[in-house]
């Protein structure tokens, strides 16, 4: 079950997006995420959908694999939808018990749902097409000016990269410990919320202990391989911009302009 989470995973294949410089992809994700909050109407969605669909196609990652990532956040999605559905004031559509669903509520709920789905798919395109190492390299380089004001950019990037590479291992481990405790009669599925939290102790304690042990081992292994922080290190894969990266930035600029301009233009035409 936990294995199904594809969020934050890398999918190995050959595509333009895979070859793109991670800095372009980071910028692209940022632009896309911001763009989702720049429009309030249907036309904006068409532009965003077109962009997202073409990126999915370019990435060559199977669509089913991408949507599996949504499974992990389905509860979050549902909560958001429900809150918006019931808590938005406006013109009543149906009303039962103490709950009312309004027309505005339906709109906002749908809007929020798509916004969240796009947000998740958008950011998973980045992680699916970029190896964690590459991604942190990109982040390190993009943020490197900050190191002048004593922000430990290299260390932060290294921590992120290690955290990412330990996700599959820790997920596997969670699965195993959970099963082992279930074999001893543990119950992770029933009871109220307090009971459930209390029942997590037999899972969380071993998990934390194991995470600390792993961290300790890893630190030792890194030291044994001459790791001593960022200074004096060379790069196996130094980041260099290519022509395609420039093209990437241009496409992003065009998209950003389109998402701002197109909905307004369309609005004007319809208003007239």
């Amino acid at each position: 079950m936990l294995r199904d989470i594809t969020l934050g995973q890398y999918y190995q294949t050959e595509s333009v997006l895979h070859r793109l410089d991670p800095r372009v992809k980071l910028m692209g994700t940022l632009v896309f995420l911001i763009s989702l909050f720049l429009f309030q109407n249907f036309t904006g969605y068409i532009v965003a959908t077109l962009f997202l669909v073409s990126m999915i196609a370019l990435s060559r990652v199977p669509v089913s694999f991408m949507f599996k990532g949504l499974k992990a956040v389905i509860i979050l999605l549902m909560i958001t939808v429900l809150i918006n559905l019931f808590a938005t004031p406006g013109e009543t559509v149906v009303s039962f018990w103490k709950l009312t669903i309004t027309k505005e509520g339906i709109y906002t709920a749908l809007f929020m749902m798509f916004r969240l789905i796009y947000l998740i798919i958008g950011s998973s395109i980045m992680t699916l097409t970029t190896t964690p190492g590459n991604l942190t390299d990109g982040m390190e380089k993009a943020l490197s000016p900050l190191s002048h004001i004593r922000v430990p950019v290299h260390e932060i990037a290294m921590m992120m990269s290690i955290a990412l590479s330990f996700i599959p291992i820790l997920l596997d481990e969670t699965d195993k410990i959970m099963k082992a405790q279930m074999a001893r009669g543990a119950d992770f599925e029933s009871g109220n919320i307090f009971r459930r939290v209390k029942n997590m102790v037999p899972l969380l304690v071993p998990l934390f202990i194991s995470a600390f042990r792993r961290a300790n081992d890893l630190a030792l292994a890194m030291e044994a391989r001459c790791y001593r922080g960022g200074s004096g290190r060379t790069k196996m894969k130094p980041l260099k911009y290519h022509l395609r990266d420039l093209a990437g930035y241009v496409i992003l600029a065009v998209y950003l302009a389109a998402i701002i301009v197109v909905p307004r233009v369309v609005d004007k035409i319809f208003v007239q």
């Binding site: 099963k179 405790q181 074999a183 001893r184 037999p202």
Partner: peptide, 11 residues
């Protein structure tokens, strides 16, 4: 059922 490395479940 005693799992592999069962000591990892002690808590």
């Amino acid at each position: 059922l005693v799992f592999q490395y069962p000591e990892h479940q002690l808590f």
